[in-house]
């Protein structure tokens, strides 16, 4: 039986007692379960519809982080002053306005696509995901939640309750989504970058690349190896930065683009990010 719980506790109780797919906005799961016109949606599992759990519809600003409830729509995130600008830039390129009124970041995580534009920025921002079950909650870094295309470590009795974005300030951020058109397009590749500079010295460098591996690519050891350089040194070594990611950028040929293009453009975007610092 499908369920439409009226509270988070009720939802968690269902998850404890049965097996469900959780539907927030439904914009991915409906496509995965395409059926026929004039016939019911052929869901493969029982559905837990959480879209009217208002207690999970919030954006809260705390000292250390911004908390985003699981059923918060992209549209409302765009309107909130404390949602980081780089996340807003990515959201503006997700689908179209109509879809952004129902789609959620939590759903984007649960869908676990390496080309998801919202998730890319979560990697960049060191987001942590609150997974709730009837027995309690745990806080997991985004890269430990998503393990591969469509694969994640969320347990059957758990659901995403909240996304936490640590509050950090950067001197410079970069976001570029490469889709086949300007709206309503799935990324061929995408890159988000952030840097913190102090007295012309690179204190922190972050790079996240989407759609070029089984998960979003983020490598802290590569990032660390360029810390402490002056900006001029970093720019002079831009080819080295790109080369460091060579083995991690392993895209595929598919109906949307090809591996050669994805790889070349990823290198170009790393370079573009570094050069604009």
């Amino acid at each position: 039986m499908n369920k439409i719980p009226e509270s988070l506790n009720e939802a968690l109780q269902y998850l404890k007692e049965g097996t469900y797919d959780v539907l927030a906005g439904g914009t991915d799961i409906m496509l995965k379960n395409r059926g026929y016109a004039e016939a019911p949606v052929p869901f493969k599992k029982n559905m837990l519809y959480i879209f009217n759990l208002d207690e999970l519809r919030y954006i809260a600003t705390h000292d250390e982080h911004i908390a985003i409830g699981a059923v918060t729509s992209y549209a409302s995130m765009l309107r909130h002053p404390d949602v980081p600008d780089i996340l807003k830039r990515s959201i503006r390129q997700i689908a179209g306005p109509a879809l952004r009124h129902v789609a959620t970041l939590a759903g984007n995580i649960g869908n676990a696509s390496p080309s998801a534009d919202g998730v890319l920025v979560l990697y960049l921002l060191d987001a942590r995901i609150i997974l709730a079950s009837a027995d309690g909650e745990r806080e997991v870094p985004i890269e430990d939640v998503i393990t591969g295309p469509g694969k994640h470590t969320i347990r059957p009795e758990e659901m995403i309750k909240e996304i936490r974005l640590p509050r950090r300030t950067f001197s410079n951020t970069f976001f570029k989504k490469v889709g086949a058109r300007k709206a309503d397009a799935i990324s061929k590749t995408s890159l988000a970058g952030a840097a913190r500079l102090h007295d012309n010295v690179v204190e922190e460098l972050r790079i996240a690349i989407g759609a070029v591996n089984v998960t979003v690519v983020r490598d802290r050891s590569i990032e660390a190896s360029f810390k402490g350089l002056t900006l001029e040194d970093l720019k002079a070594r831009v080819d080295e930065v790109a080369a460091a990611y060579d083995s991690l950028i392993r895209p595929i040929d598919d109906q949307r683009s090809n591996a050669r293009y994805r790889k070349q453009v990823s290198f170009n975007l790393i370079e573009a990010f570094i050069r604009q610092l």
Partner: peptide, 25 residues
């Protein structure tokens, strides 16, 4: 607008993969 095929099978078979311009384009 790209539609291609491999061994006689079309690769772009829905409106997600077959790209037509939007008002933004």
């Amino acid at each position: 607008e790209v539609m291609s095929r491999e061994n006689g099978r079309l690769k772009q078979t829905n409106m997600t993969d077959y790209i037509i311009p939007t008002a933004m384009d």
